[in-house]
Every structure is written in structure tokens, then in C-alpha cells.
Amino acid sequence: MLHTFVALVEDKPGVLTRVASLFRRLNINIVSLTVGESERPDTSRMTIVCDAHEHAAHRIRASLYKLETTVHVDEVDRSAAVVRELCLMKIAVGPDSPNGSHSRSQIFELANVFRARVVDLAPESIMLEMTGSSSKIEGLVQVITESGYTILEVSRTGRMAMRRGHHTSRVLSALGSRPKADGNGDNHGSKLDFHDNLGDEILPNEFENVHEEEI
């Protein structure tokens, strides 16, 4: 089954390799992986979708957190989350297209139905931009193909995920504004003495779902 993880990682060279290498070592195929900036400075946010055994989630999450460059890992499979993908698609629309000179207007109509936008118009092609769930993107691809058009190029970002609601991960609030590991000697770090957090509802990465997993 597909698992979706959101990992906050340090924005440093080699971090992507560490994450990717972990999946390679576990012999798990990554379906999609997106990396970009997060709300925190010097911290990247990755959404990793992988195809693994139903009960592998705990181990993957724990292994991701074991990487020294990982700040936080969340698994969004079981929770309500918004999952989106961005897709760019180039369609051949010229005089030879199925509907001849009406081809462009038909593509515009289809794009409207799927809430895609036209972002480039050339004599021989149209480029569409669309965000949505994977199935919505696949739906547009299917409709265009079935209408007899040739899709020249498709570029998809892969899935990005964010939990719904006020969650914003209890871990982050427990962490507060964690200082960067820049070794400049300011001792914000001492405030993060782990045992100070004992009163919190949940400790960072106490894997409370351990017992739901089966081998």
C-alpha cells in the first residue's frame, strides 16, 4: 500500500541522499518525493510517498527520524490531510488535431471542467497547468487522450501533503523555536532539555502507534 510521510529536514547538502538512501536500503520504492522550503528557516519539507507493506509505516518513520538531519517526521496516511500535486501538460493542438480548428476551444472547455489553466499557447501546442489530487490529474490525462489528442509532455511534481485543521503537529509546538545546529555557541539548546517536556501531552516522536503494527 502507499504510505505518505512528511519530513522536516535540515536544508544542507546531502540530506536528500540520506533520505533516498534509507529507502534504497530498506528496498522500498519511492513513488514520489517532493522537496521545498518550509515555514521554518533552514528547514526543508519533504513529502515522501512510498509503496511498502501495510505495517511498514512505523519502521520507516522511526528510521527517518534516526537520520541526524531529520527534525521531524509525520505520517499522514491515517489522518485527514490535504494531498495535492501540480501537473504541467503539453498537448499537440494544430491543424491536424481531431477537431481541426475547434481543437483549441475544446481543450479550453476541458481545462475549465478540470479547473486547469492554460499557461502557454503556441501554434502547435497548448500547455495546461493543474493542481489537484492524483486521480483528478489522471482524469484529465484520460479525457484528453480519449478525445484523440496527443499529449506531448507531462510533468508532475509528486504529492505534497498537509494535515487538515489546527494540528500543525504537536511536535513543533513542543520543540518551540529550536535553534539551528550552527555551533555558534548560543545556548538556546539547553532550554530544550528533554525532561522539561515531560508535562506535555505527548513527547516529540514518542511513537504512540507502535502497537497497531503487525509484522
Binding site: P179, G185, N187, G189, L192, D193, L198, L203, N205
Partner: peptide, 20 residues
């Protein structure tokens, strides 16, 4: 300066709570 090169506190490590 040795002291200035000190790493910040170790990452929060998963730990058991006494009332768990």
C-alpha cells in the same frame, strides 16, 4: 574556542513517559 563550538542540545529523543 572549545566552548563556543559546543553542539546545541541533542535532538529530542523518543523517550518513555513515567505515566505512560
Amino acid at each position: 574556542e572549545f566552548a563556543a563550538a559546543a553542539p546545541c542540545a541533542a535532538r529530542p529523543h523518543p523517550m518513555l513517559r513515567a505515566d505512560s
